[in-house]
């Protein structure tokens, strides 16, 4: 499980409002894609997905206020399937 944190957005920025989730819980997300938009003052900031996987939990919802370091969501990382594929091939031919 990988947590998505609100990053440090600058000196003296102690909080930001969650303004938009690009995905719903349960969705597949890709590393680097826009995950959630937060707003502070007259700026919006897109927090990217830190890994590819399934968005299993959203902790901070639209309208909530979060602080840098707060967990916004949790992603279950995609598992590497190379080894499984090899096993299947062995079974199929065995």
């Amino acid at each position: 499980m990988i947590h998505v944190y609100l990053p440090d957005l600058g000196e003296n920025i102690t909080k930001a409002t969650i303004s938009y989730w690009y995905f719903e819980r349960g969705a597949a997300v890709t590393e680097g894609s826009d995950l959630v938009e937060v707003a502070t003052d007259k700026a919006t900031f897109n927090v990217p997905a830190p890994c590819s996987g399934t968005l299993v939990e959203i902790t901070a919802h639209e309208g909530d206020v979060a602080r840098p370091g707060d967990v916004l969501a949790t992603i279950e990382e995609d598992t590497v399937t190379d080894g499984d594929d090899d096993d299947r091939e062995i079974n199929a031919t065995g």
């Binding site: 957005l9 600058g10 000196e11 920025i13 900031f45």
Partner: peptide, 9 residues
């Protein structure tokens, strides 16, 4: 440039 949204504003 320092990663600071408010400084940029």
């Amino acid at each position: 440039r320092g990663r600071d949204l408010h400084f940029y504003l």
